[in-house]
Design a protein around this nucleic acid. Structure first.
Lengths: 242, 242
DNA sequence: GCCATAAGTTGCATTGAACAACTTACTAGA
DNA sequence: TCTAGTAAGTTGTTCAATGCAACTTATGGC
């Protein structure tokens, strides 16, 4: 390990590229989707024409910290106000970017389904929602983004088993049957109605917000989140007997 | 977002410093401890004389990826063969290091209690184990390491509630009472013996390894981990009735 | 008015855990 | 060799939460 002489001077280490990527999830048309951007077709950049997670270099002048950078990336692609944003992890190494040693800090965001104003960014030829399950079959994403996406999906599915995360995927107010359906969509299996309701209401994280007319005949109670900053953690997972 | 012209050429962004830090936990003398290094006293480096998490700059020539870098840091301080190593997260921003915008990738490691050959590194004036609970009372660590350590402890305590992580804190073979005591040490509360045994044995992650003479009169069954790569996840947390 | 549909409820069976009392296997020392 | 102490390991009861399934309720449409 080297050290410099002068007081708090820059260090003489080669610095890797530093980027931030965001895995943006939403539930649209009854399926879990992720937002991807298409890389420019020009050969001057790596992985031309390939789909990738939205993200890019940290701008030390603009971003005061990593989370601020992630929020900026999110804002540039979607126009979402206050999504759920959680750090997923970081991926770094010599060979993930042909331009050299790089490290990316990855966040994952949950946003409510909405008529998205998909902004076409300078470095993003196109932006679109992709069904998560379909991506595995398609061509691999740019960089190591396929691996990162898989990690994000695993984390999401894992946490949905024992947290209230899916509530962040719905516009407020939402009904319990709607919330249950999001759980079922993300988990890919049915959930018992009675137990689901008991659990959600016992966790005390929902505030009643008056009846809402849904797709059903009978009006259902609408709810809002008591705390939008973090999900509730349940003491047990859903575990069907079958 | 800017882009360069030539094929896969370096990008013209200012690059933050990139470091890797490791939170190394162990249970010694019946207490949860963390390994810290003392920063050099010279004023040429930030936080002189303060205690910090072991870590340092990524060496792009030496480290093929982040995990390799973390393993190197671990090896430099301890001489541990195959610890449990998990990524905790990353912290980055403008003001955490007076030398400039920096980002650190943090790992946390669990190692078995052992007569540690504490290597004195070039950049580490001293190395020592600290009781985790005592650090909060003492002076703050260098950089944002106090915050990082708190996050690591939270993650560890949280996961211990529903995983077999404490098994990585013991040298093999270990007995169930020993394992239970590690759980109690980390969680800071007693755990029921009967339920504990049922749960551990039902999870099928332990292999019998013959009887071991412990501190007790009656010999206890020794166990080894079936899989040292990852902990087992239990479907429920420990939850005393209180 | 009657029916279809989805919201919401009730009740039973089962599981696993918390708790506590018990038995077992060994050491140490008289 | 006998006896007491200690910690390992077991057994049994209670309790709470859940899975499951059948039920009731509220509404819109015909």
């Amino acid at each position: 390990m080297a050290s410099t002489a002068a007081s708090h001077q820059p260090v003489d280490f080669v610095r890797p590229y530093t980027t931030v990527d965001v895995v943006i999830f939403s539930v649209l048309d009854g399926a879990l989707k992720v937002l991807l951007v298409q890389r420019p077709a020009s050969n001057s950049e790596p992985f031309p024409g390939r789909w990738a997670l939205p993200g890019g270099f940290v701008d030390v002048a603009q971003d005061s910290d990593l989370q601020a950078c992630a929020n900026r990336k999110l804002r540039e692609k979607t126009n979402v106000a206050s999504p759920y944003l959680e750090q997923l992890g970081s991926w770094g190494g010599r060979s993930r970017d042909p331009r050299g040693w790089s490290a990316t800090h990855v966040y994952f965001a949950l946003i409510a389904a909405q008529p998205l104003t998909l902004a076409k960014g300078a470095n993003a030829a196109d932006v679109a929602w992709f069904e998560v399950d379909a991506i595995c079959d398609g061509p691999p994403l740019a960089f190591d983004h396929s691996e990162i996406l898989r990690a994000a999906v695993d984390r999401l599915r894992g946490k949905v088993e024992y947290t209230s995360l899916p509530a962040f995927l719905l516009p407020e107010p939402f009904t319990l049957p709607q919330l249950q359906q999001v759980y079922e969509t993300v988990l890919g299996r049915p959930v018992d109605k009675s137990g689901f309701r008991t659990r959600m209401l016992a966790a005390q994280f929902l505030h009643e917000a008056g009846h809402v007319e849904g797709p059903s005949n009978r009006p259902a109670m609408g709810y809002r989140l008591a705390d939008r900053s973090a999900p509730v953690v349940f003491p047990r997972t859903f575990s069907p007997r079958g």
